[in-house]
């Protein structure tokens, strides 16, 4: 870290200033930040952590974590994980192809700008309005539903499609997943140097061989990291699913929401343990993402 080195060298010059003579004063400068995060983040988080280890009578217990295997909880987690994994992989694949189409596919540059702007907007267009937009598109009276039904003389509802199901929710989540993938993966695709391709071609590599042995291995950590981040992005979502299904789809965030409103698990401790379980899964996703991100920077600087 060049920064730290420079700070070290300047220490002599700096000691002339009052704050340096009183190190406590230096800590005073960051105290508002720590006080604020203590009040609005660590204290609330602490309540959940402590509560998750207490039983109904307030005695310490690990039973709440053992109870995470209760069908209603386990099922909610399984659904959340399934939906997040499918939309992360699907959104990741489509987002990658979309980013590749403007960066490597030779499309005019203005289309790249347009895609990046749209991706910035679309990845932030989540929650209630997104759910509504899809109800107007693929709901029973939706725009696209009517178009498909008329064109193919069918009824997708009768054929078994419902927007208010897991598949429906996955289609909706995809709307913010693939633009996020475009935003994350574009810098990695930009980092693929033209020299590598030329070097491979000079040695007689086909396009497939270049991708299989050069580009793909270099991109792999970025791709995996991005997909993991997408997973976390879908896993924590609540508003979209709530608005779409009226809170009836059994996924982890919806069950926790119901638990806040009315103790549907009939065990406050289990509710806290369930919330902690979400945090643990999110933490694993974010850690995985940052480790892989660091690894990918080795080549793509």
């Amino acid at each position: 870290m060049p920064d730290t080195a420079a700070d070290g060298n300047k220490r002599g010059a700096r000691s002339a200033r009052p704050a340096q003579r009183r190190p406590l004063l230096a800590w005073l400068g960051v105290s508002p930040f720590f006080l604020f995060t203590l009040l609005f983040m660590f204290l609330p988080a602490g309540f959940l952590v402590v509560g998750s280890f207490l039983d109904q009578e307030g005695q310490p217990t690990l039973q709440n974590y053992a109870d995470l295997t209760t069908p209603i909880v386990a099922n909610a987690y399984a659904n959340s994980i399934e939906i997040s994994a499918i939309t992360a992989i699907g959104g990741g694949l489509f987002g990658f192809l979309l980013a590749a189409s403007v960066i490597l596919g030779g499309l005019p540059p203005f289309m790249r700008n347009a895609l990046m702007t749209f991706s910035g907007v679309a990845s932030n267009f989540a929650g209630v309005p997104l759910a509504l937009a899809f109800i107007y598109t693929l709901g029973n009276l939706g725009f696209l539903t009517a178009f498909i039904n008329n064109t193919f003389a069918t009824d997708i509802g009768q054929a078994g499609f419902s927007l208010y199901s897991k598949v429906g929710l996955e289609i909706v989540y995809m709307y913010f997943q693939f633009p996020l993938m475009v935003l994350i993966i574009a810098p990695a695709l930009d980092g693929l140097k033209r020299d590598w391709r030329e070097a491979a071609e000079n040695m007689g590599a086909t396009g497939f061989q270049y991708w299989r042995y050069v580009a793909f291995p270099i991109l792999l950590p970025s791709l995996m990291g991005a997909v993991i981040l997408l997973f976390g992005n879908a896993f924590g979502a609540q508003a979209t699913a709530f608005q779409l299904t009226g809170g009836t789809i059994p996924i982890a965030s919806i069950v926790i929401g119901a638990q806040i409103r009315g103790d549907v698990l009939h065990n406050t401790g289990l509710g806290f343990a369930m919330a902690m379980g979400m945090v643990v899964i999110m933490a694993m996703a974010i850690t995985g993402y940052s480790l892989l991100q660091r690894r990918s920077e080795r080549w793509l600087k």
């Binding site: 489509f94 192809l97 696209l144 693939f178």
Partner: peptide, 27 residues
């Protein structure tokens, strides 16, 4: 190279365009 773009790139971009705009048009 001519900046006309590969066919696959146009197809993917078109799909992305539809996915992005159809819900907005419907709304």
């Amino acid at each position: 190279k001519p900046r006309r773009g590969a066919l696959w790139a146009w197809v993917i971009f078109g799909l992305g365009f539809l996915y992005f705009f159809l819900p907005l048009v419907a709304t």
